[in-house]
């Protein structure tokens, strides 16, 4: 079974992770633009970050047989820095048209401040203009209220619900998202957010329709193999193959295909690997023998 991790920050991960992910069956990832653990203070830092998401990181993934897609946005946390907001929002149109950019995200709320609300609204308009779906982060603190506010924002802006993926759901927020008509993502984390056991229970209760799971692995304690590990747990607890495949492959493909930028035939084929390739003169190899699989 092919697996798609629809939310993972590969920029923070190692080549060992790429190898382990490929070995576990992950063939495609979506990397949403987020923050880097410590706030950036110059727009130039975003410019280089966005460029790396469509450049080096995409190349790096390809060297391990993984297709790399990304979502671009000013994230909710850094949306609170008045020295950044206008400049980063102005930068986004330069990137939203590029290959591999299949959504606007992560947008949404962190503390639900007026500045977050403004950035959320403006980026919904950018998504409309570039005909992209949106990946929406939900707050860690005051989650239920924050999710309700998020869904209300989407309604106020009449953003088509089938083009919305609301992420980091819990037992209490999943029903709200499904009821709204949007897609619901779940971040399977070692301790916080959602875990494998609880996720299987949610799948048994709600089925597979518009439900996705992801590792949300980043620079913190997190696990880039949480999608395959949750698949294994679903099998052990008797979830049928059709349901599993819908959650870990068909749903993410269908959601991001709304960008018009996924080549569905190409996605079905095994990815080619040619580690002899260079990116701006750089190779992922450090003296190893190049793997070539065409």
């Amino acid at each position: 079974m092919k697996l798609f991790d629809p939310h993972i920050h590969m920029t923070s991960r190692t080549t060992d992770d790429y190898q382990a992910m490929a070995a576990a069956g992950i063939v495609a990832v979506l990397e949403p633009a987020f923050w880097l653990g410590q706030p950036r203070t110059h727009v130039g830092s975003f410019e280089d970050y966005f460029a790396s998401l469509v450049g080096w990181e995409r190349f790096r993934a390809s060297q391990f047989g993984i297709r790399h897609f990304c979502a671009m946005a000013l994230n909710p946390k850094e949306a609170n820095d008045p020295n950044l907001v206008d400049w980063v929002l102005a930068l986004l149109p330069r990137y939203l048209g590029k290959d591999g950019v299949v959504a606007v995200g992560e947008i949404g709320f962190d503390e639900v401040t007026p500045s977050e609300e403004r950035c959320f609204a403006e980026q919904l308009e950018l998504a409309r203009r570039f005909e992209l779906p949106v990946l929406v982060h939900t707050p860690h603190r005051d989650k239920k209220r924050g999710t309700e506010r998020t869904l209300a924002m989407l309604r106020e802006h009449r953003f088509p619900e089938e083009r919305v993926l609301v992420d980091h759901n819990t037992e209490e927020t999943l029903p709200l998202v499904l009821e709204s008509g949007g897609w619901a993502g779940h971040s399977i984390y070692p301790r916080t957010k959602m875990d494998e056991e609880r996720m299987v229970t949610l799948v048994q209760r709600h089925g597979a329709e518009r439900i996705l799971i992801n590792s949300a692995a980043d620079w913190g304690v997190s696990d880039p193999l949480k999608v395959p590990k949750t698949v294994a747990r679903m099998r052990e607890r008797g979830v049928d193959e059709e349901t599993i495949e819908t959650i870990v492959w068909r749903n993410p493909v269908a959601f991001f295909a709304q960008s018009g930028r996924l080549d569905l035939t190409e996605l079905e084929k095994p990815a080619t690997i040619d580690q002899r390739e260079l990116w701006e003169g750089n190779s992922v190899l450090r003296g190893q023998t190049a793997v070539v699989r065409t």
């Binding site: 603190r141 989650k143 239920k144 819990t170 037992e171 209490e172 959602m194 609880r198």
Partner: peptide
């Protein structure tokens, strides 16, 4: 209210 909601979220997650 926020504290009560957080407690409810924790309980729902077991």
């Amino acid at each position: 209210r926020m504290a009560a909601d957080y407690a409810s979220e924790r309980r729902a997650a077991g």
